[in-house]
């Protein structure tokens, strides 16, 4: 079983696909759940505190907006832990949505910097492309299973 970073990280469909094919999806559900389940904080809705924006300094300098650094404090550790990544470009909002374009650019860059296997896909526009989309993910994850 390999750790697979998913993009959009908020995509439940993508997360489910990775889990169904026997791997561990690394996405928002994981990192946000950790924050929300950590006792002692009172910073709704995500339990992210100003300290998290400071933790994000590991990935982005202090002149980078706090929202980018706060997001990177969630996604940066996931990228570090990833052994593979699936990136879906131009996804529909309903499929999964990452709010900040600057953060997304940095995430893409850091994923590729890692040198891990990456599957790049375009969001399917019809049923046929949808089937190909799932097949490509399955094939990628099978390969990842062999190397992991």
């Amino acid at each position: 079983m390999a750790n697979v970073f998913i993009y959009p990280a908020t995509s439940l469909i993508l997360s489910d696909l990775v889990a169904r094919f026997g791997h561990k999806p690394l996405g928002s559900a994981l990192s946000v759940r950790e924050h929300i389940q950590t006792a002692g904080f009172d910073s709704p809705p995500l339990q992210i505190t100003p300290e998290d924006a400071k933790k994000g300094l590991k990935y982005a300098a202090v002149e980078v907006p706090s929202g980018v650094r706060g997001r990177m404090s969630l996604y940066g550790p996931l990228i570090e832990a990833a052994e593979g990544a699936i990136i879906v470009n131009d996804a529909d909002y309903a499929f999964g949505c990452m709010g900040c374009a600057r953060t997304n650019e940095l995430i893409m860059f850091l994923v590729r910097q890692r040198g891990i296997p990456v599957l790049d896909l375009n969001y399917p526009a019809n049923e046929k492309e949808g089937e190909e989309f799932v097949a490509a993910i399955k094939s990628f994850l099978d390969t990842l299973g062999e190397t992991a």
Partner: peptide, 14 residues
């Protein structure tokens, strides 16, 4: 908005 919940300041706004 964009970003307050990720900057840890949403509670301050509330």
């Amino acid at each position: 908005s964009c970003g307050p919940e990720y900057s840890g300041v949403q509670k301050e706004i509330n």
